[in-house]
Design a binder for these strands. Structure first.
Lengths: 267, 267
DNA sequence: TATCATTTGTTCGTATGTATC
DNA sequence: CGATACATACGAACAAATGAT
């Protein structure tokens, strides 16, 4: 028997309260920056218990409509009717011949270089499970919006062996790394994969994430255009509520011979 | 006095329990598909009250590690060590001259055509606040993974007036729309912006989203390459936990004269 | 079919801790 | 210091879904 027969059921009380307050927020009854009525006040307003009022506010937090602060109150956030303020330009530039450049950068600290074992998505994308790589970590930030992002460059040892200059200064600007690969006679192609997920606690604190915000995650793989062999992987983690990624899509010739992902779909 | 003096504070009990179970999940102690110990059992295991055990499980849900089902239990999800299964290829293809195509598509239902007033991100991207547009809505799905996505094409009336064939069959394939624009003598350029946010309740039900999953949202703007004037906007909303977007980044000449976003940044 | 134990979901209560003003 | 507000933690009871008897 199908599990979804009865679509009609009384919504939970805390959900009804949350829905009502959410409507009040969207209708402008509570404006961004305002303090919501306190949980105590909501109990009286809607005739519910402490836990119900609290669950309602928790639901509003989960919806990304409000943010609570101990001792102060629950503040109404901006209503996401616009795109996030920080636009990260994912374009790659190359002057007429040979010289590479990337849109400008603000790194908070110096890059942290370490050696790690590849695992997770980067290992899959580089096709090198359980191989070692040089890892270069940077904490980026956008001074105008205060958004923080985590950036990581992974240079597989196989690539470093092929182009030794990479290992000498792995914490150089990324454009320089591209340059070195190109100077080694490789023609480069770039593929980027974007997804999002809930942050781990350490990521939450490192990037100063609010309760509801997720991480926008982009993996850029630099590959040898001739053989499609992956050379480099970059990972960018940005708070989705304050950041957007911008791509310029260039039409290409249709017949892709090698499969790049699992299933491949689009509009 | 500064508010952040004491970084060290005992984490809440429910968080400690959640962290411990999370570690057990990541270490393989609980495997994907397994049922977690019941909340009742956790009370005894960790010597905490009902509310604490419950909060810990709620935290694990919020982390996207588990999913609870009333009457059954709490099941461990895949550990997110891989990229989401459904890869959406955002490439655009053009054969030698004139003919456009896009990666294959699966639309669940026929397209719903309506007329709407532009607002939110599409209005900003099209630079046409409070103007009307033809809206074509489709519900896409990936049969192999069961992932559902919402796709919308917005054709501003200004564009429809310029290229009348667009309004005749607005629910044609997107590649055909590009073709018609190109046939009208326009050279096209494409910009895509990606972000993520918590879904609205209607989006949650329409796309069958789980508790923790957010929406990955991509806006593709088709513009006239000569003047940079936006012609068309597509919106794709996909569940972030099951979908990834794939882009091919083509190096371009560096000096962009017109600003495309607010602040512009990259690694 | 009906009943029952198990498990999560919702709702109520109380108390204490901690941050803000 | 006190009042306010949210955070955490203890408790109880009933509802609803599930699976097995």
């Amino acid at each position: 028997m199908a599990a979804r027969e009865h679509i009609e059921r009384r919504p939970a009380m805390f959900m009804q309260v949350a829905q009502r307050v959410a409507d009040d927020i969207r209708s402008g009854r509570y404006k961004p920056g305002d303090l919501l009525p306190s949980e105590k006040h909501m109990e009286d307003m809607y005739g519910v218990g402490k836990h119900t009022a609290r669950s309602a506010v928790a639901e509003l937090r989960r919806m990304g409509l409000v943010e609570s602060q101990q001792g102060k109150g629950t503040i109404v956030l901006a209503t996401g009717q616009a795109l996030p303020a920080t636009s990260v330009d994912r374009a790659i530039h190359r002057t007429t011949k040979g010289s590479w450049s990337l849109p400008t950068t603000n790194a908070s600290e110096t890059a942290a270089v370490s050696r790690t074992t590849l695992d997770g998505p980067p290992a899959l994308l580089l096709g090198q499970q359980d191989q070692d790589a040089i890892s270069v970590d940077r904490l980026l930030h956008d001074p105008t919006t205060g958004a923080r992002m985590a950036h990581r460059v992974l240079i597989p040892l196989a690539t470093a062996a092929e182009v030794p200059t990479l290992a000498e200064q792995p914490d150089a600007e990324v454009a320089d790394l591209y340059q070195q690969l190109a100077d080694a006679g490789l023609s480069l192609e770039f593929t980027e994969r974007v997804t999002a997920r809930a942050p781990f606690p350490d990521e939450r604190t490192a990037l100063g994430l609010s309760d509801a915000s997720h991480l926008l995650i982009a993996y850029r793989v630099t590959a040898d255009a001739d053989q499609g062999r992956p050379l480099l992987c970059e990972e960018l983690k940005a708070p989705a509520d304050t950041c957007q990624l911008a791509f310029t899509v260039t039409p290409t010739k249709p017949p892709a011979k090698r499969a790049t992902g699992r299933s491949s779909r689009s509009e």
